[in-house]
């Protein structure tokens, strides 16, 4: 069961996130839960493994927007970094970033259970 307290422990900037949701906790929590199954996670992973940097950038960018809105800082940080690298279409090994993103999003998923 996802709670504001749980999100705080996770490291989310819940205050900010709630402000954007007009302090509607239920709405905020529902969106956070919804964000976990955002297709962009998968798209990002697939695009990176296919070395399709254009598609990877699109996915990272979309993800960054959602995570920023919901103030899910622990995932937002690596996503922001990877977005900037992908914007420049840097050819490099992205797996450390992906690992961190996947690890954190898994952590969030656990909170929802």
């Amino acid at each position: 069961m996802l709670t504001i307290e749980g999100l705080k422990t996770f490291g989310a900037d819940t205050e900010n996130g709630l402000t954007r949701c007009m302090n509607n906790e239920a709405f905020y929590l529902k969106l956070v839960e919804k964000s976990i199954s955002d297709a962009s996670y998968q798209k990002l992973n697939e695009a990176i493994s296919a070395n399709d940097l254009d598609a990877a950038f699109e996915a990272a960018h979309a993800l960054k927007g959602v995570l920023g809105n919901l103030a899910l800082t622990p995932i937002l940080e690596p996503v922001s970094e990877i977005t900037e690298l992908l914007r420049a279409r840097t050819q490099m090994d992205y797996s450390p970033y992906l690992e961190k993103i996947n690890e954190k999003s898994e952590g969030l998923k656990k909170l929802c259970e």
Partner: peptide
Amino acid sequence: VAINAEIMLMV
């Protein structure tokens, strides 16, 4: 992005 849209609509 659906979630972003939902927040905006809510706001």
